[in-house]
Simulated scan of single mutants.
Amino acid sequence: MVDGLIIRSSSIHAAGCYTTRAIKKGARVVEYDGPRFTKDEADDRYQDRDITYLFSCGTDGMVIDGFGTAMFINHSCDPNCQTEDVDGRIFVMAIRDIAAGSELTYEYNLYDSDDAEQDCYCGAEQCRGTMFSEAEVKKRARKARAAAKAKAS
Rank of each mutant, 00 (worst) to 15 (best):
Q126M: 09
Y46M: 08
L54E: 04
R49V: 06
E41S: 13
D97C: 06
E107M: 10
R89A: 15
R45G: 06
T38I: 09
F91V: 09
T20D: 05
Q82C: 15
D44G: 10
V86I: 15
H75D: 04
T105N: 08
M71F: 02
D85S: 03
T52F: 03
N80S: 10
T19Q: 06
N80K: 04
Y106G: 04
G129H: 03
K139S: 08
D78A: 15
D43F: 13
M62R: 12
D40V: 13
M71W: 01
G129T: 01
D114C: 08
E84T: 10
K24F: 05
R36Q: 13
K39H: 11
Y108S: 04
C77Y: 05
Y46V: 05
S113T: 15
G101D: 09
D112M: 11
R21H: 08
K39M: 14
S133V: 02
E103V: 10
V92N: 03
L54Q: 07
Y46E: 07
I90N: 00
G129I: 04
G123R: 10
V30R: 00
R140D: 02
F132N: 01
K139A: 14
D43Q: 12
N74F: 02
R49T: 08
F132R: 00
G123Y: 12
Q126N: 15
E84S: 15
R36N: 07
I64D: 01
D44Y: 14
Q82W: 07
I73K: 00
C81I: 13
N80G: 03
R96N: 13
T130Y: 01
R49I: 05
D114P: 05
M71A: 01
L110E: 04
G66D: 02
V30G: 00
Y32D: 00
K138N: 06
G34I: 02
S133T: 04
P35K: 13
L110R: 04
T52L: 03
D87A: 15
N74T: 02
F67A: 11
T59A: 09
F72H: 00
A100K: 10
I51T: 13
A94L: 11
C57T: 14
C77M: 10
D43C: 12
D115L: 15
F55M: 14
E134R: 08
M131N: 02
D48A: 11
Q47F: 11
Q47D: 12
T20V: 14
G61F: 06
